[in-house]
Design a binder for these strands. Structure first.
Lengths: 214, 214
DNA sequence: TAGATTGTTAATCGATTAACAATC
DNA sequence: TAGATTGTTAATCGATTAACAATC
């Protein structure tokens, strides 16, 4: 375990936490009650040393000779990532991608509840998407307040992404997940993370070129 | 410019290339003919030193006092990332996410052409999605061969992701973009990159917790 | 020319890995 | 107990930043 109170956990470590979480869930599903740093490392392609270093940031200890208790590890990781409370999100943009996200029920299982979807196109406003109805983007601020929204997911075209991010921040949203193929910036204490499929494709393509030359 | 032939460019650098590319495109759209390392750094939140280091890996030089020629930079980055030839992709899984990807025409503009979409659910096979018809997953190998597919995008549930990745590799696909919330592994020389929206949400949530404590 | 910006080297910073005593 | 696996320190490795001569 170690320093529960001392923080500044590197971003690279936080980036591996979701992976530990999934892998632990999978191992539990297979009936494992204990997971070792070596087992996680093998599954994820890290070294066991990295895994132990990473997990030592959590307020939680493994047990020598056995490893980490899977159920406990899962719980501590969830808590650390702020998933236990349930994060409340909105989707900005009701195009193909926004609509797909709105109907993607896997998010709920992981602690992310999507409360609303917005668009500024009058043709889309009012349309039903799964359980939700597309709302006018002008009504964002009221919804953020009444629904206590934590996170905005940006699924609009690249040119509109920064303006939409600004409106989310102005409405009081602290966390932004950007899916548009562009770079956006937000003032502190707001936080942005990118989940850009195009970027993934481009990096993949670059990596393929490297691999074919090596 | 420097060593065009010498490789092993760090993954972190390749990860920034798409960002340079987008930013350069945007600046060109605004009419800029030259971009400086400082301008890119400011827009993306890096230091100019990092930008210059990164771009020095490319077979291309800036010009003292002016910066980098935007059109040329865009072209060299595209080429480096293997986008100029046009990458040919298939989508595995015709659920909400897979269907949204199939209709997402932004990919084509960035050099990724989606040639087919597969599912193993007979109810979905034959269904029309945009320009494509959902095919039976058993026909993957033939399609990969006849369509010269480079990339497979995995948009199936987590439990099925590894098996689908294996089938892609067996069919001869070298690059895999994993969108499922799980970790998959492939044998060399195949390459995987992840574009997991759930992971992005979890990292964001963790970063929000850190930011609120700081 | 004078000044701005590159390319590159060297210094710093941070992250990963190795190693091993502690321990269950 | 003996052996496996943790937690942590120290060493290594790699990535970022600073600095500055070269140059257009």
């Amino acid at each position: 375990m170690s320093k529960p109170g001392e923080r500044k956990i590197p971003r690279s470590v936080i980036g591996r936490f979701p992976q530990y979480l999934w892998e632990t869930q999978e191992l539990r599903d297979e009936g494992q009650e204990w997971v070792s740093s070596q087992a996680l490392a093998d599954a994820l392609g890290f070294t066991s040393s990295t895994v132990r270093q990473d997990l030592s940031h959590l307020d939680f200890s493994g047990v020598a000779k056995r490893g980490y208790e899977a159920a406990k590890l899962q719980q501590v990781l969830s808590e650390f990532l702020g998933l236990d409370a349930g994060r409340r999100a909105v989707i900005m943009g009701a195009g193909n991608l926004g609509r797909a996200l709105a109907q993607h029920n896997a998010f709920a299982r992981q602690g992310f509840v999507i409360r609303a979807i917005f668009d500024n196109n009058p043709k889309l406003v009012g349309r039903k998407i799964g359980q939700l109805v597309v709302q006018d983007a002008r009504d964002l601020e009221a919804a953020v307040r009444s629904e206590k929204i934590d996170i905005g997911m940006i699924a609009v075209p690249a040119q509109a992404a920064q303006a939409v991010a600004d409106s989310l921040v102005a409405a009081g949203v602290r966390g932004i997940l950007n899916l548009a193929p562009t770079n956006i910036r937000v003032p502190k204490p707001a936080v942005v993370r990118n989940a850009r499929i195009s970027a993934g494709l481009m990096e993949l393509s670059g990596a393929m070129k490297m691999a074919s030359q090596a």
